[in-house]
Nucleic acid binder design. Sequence first.
DNA 1: AATTTTTTGTACTTGCTGGTACATTTTGTC
DNA 2: GACAAAATGTACCAGCAAGTACAAAAAATT
Lengths: 197, 197
Amino acid sequence: MTKTAKGAATRQRIVEAAAAEIRERGTVVTTLDDVCRRSGTGKSQMFHYFPRGREQLLLAVTELEARNVFDDQEPYLSQLTSRQAWRQWRDVVVETCRTQGLHCPLGVLIADVGRYSPAAQAVARQLIRRWQDAVRAGVEATQAAGEADPRIDADRLAAAVVTVIQGGVSVLLSTGSADHLEIALDMVLGPILRPFS
Amino acid sequence: MTKTAKGAATRQRIVEAAAAEIRERGTVVTTLDDVCRRSGTGKSQMFHYFPRGREQLLLAVTELEARNVFDDQEPYLSQLTSRQAWRQWRDVVVETCRTQGLHCPLGVLIADVGRYSPAAQAVARQLIRRWQDAVRAGVEATQAAGEADPRIDADRLAAAVVTVIQGGVSVLLSTGSADHLEIALDMVLGPILRPFS
DNA sequence: AATTTTTTGTACTTGCTGGTACATTTTGTC
DNA sequence: GACAAAATGTACCAGCAAGTACAAAAAATT
């Protein structure tokens, strides 16, 4: 489909425009024409690079956002070895969600897109999996460093963390407040934030 | 708008048909014609009882579902005084979500409708509030009965519980599995499920 | 029974959105 | 520079879904 550098650039512009549009206004109300306008392209390109149309574009957006979200967090996640690092990470997560508010890509992604196309659902599932793995690795590293109770089940804790984040974002979407996220995250992270004796 | 019993009945049929349709197939793909067909009415009635159209209907559905969800849970919630009752409630929540799966009205509601109309958002917010209040009352009752650690902050725990449920449903929607819900709920309920000394 | 109000049926309009057709330009290749 | 392939511009189509117009039937009111 894409054979030249120019083409690749155009394709990318389209995906990024779509992602931005969706982040700002939501999936349902974002139209292909909006995306074309924003990316400075026409329907022609649209269907040239995404022959299966809207569905295919949404999938590409989903993948892009999944990458973005993960790349954003990765540097923090890979250094979770001390209680202090955890505390910092907690703050980053809450703050990111709070400021991005309704535009939280992860929220939009999983809540919105995932439900309607099996392919996008698979992407969402994979993102959750990776996210959870990264958190689990962090827990294990902290345990290995002797900074956390070794009796903590790292994978269960990680599962709870991603669930709580997802829920917090969800509540944020309907209430506009990140309080729930903060409270629940604190509670779940409790065992690892508090010193163990 | 509605002056006679017959009219009220029709109006109700419309809302219920819409709710069912949305539960089964989702908000985005549900059309007014679908609702008319299912309720055995015509556009004429539709706009007679909901002059502001689709938006107004969705709001009515949101309110209906909010009532339903809460009425379902209320009997359980009001009797949360023993650790055993909590364990039972936990099972009911998980099981309900698991079997209802993608059709979970709460999930659909808050994730789907809430984001697009301020009015619906208000309803969602109120539902969360009531739900959280009920859980908090349960925690306090359990503490009063001497079955739970009095040092637990009831409101924070309640906030975490609703967050976790919301998140669990959200994850369920994209992964199809209720495992996350179960794990996170267990973890958050930990302090109240385990005997304290 | 007359009349006014409410309820309902039918047919239509309008606007938008995903998607297509096809011609034209640009780009890479020999 | 010729030729093929890729990229792009313009114009269009088909369908669908929200919403409207208006008249007819059914109830309520007197």
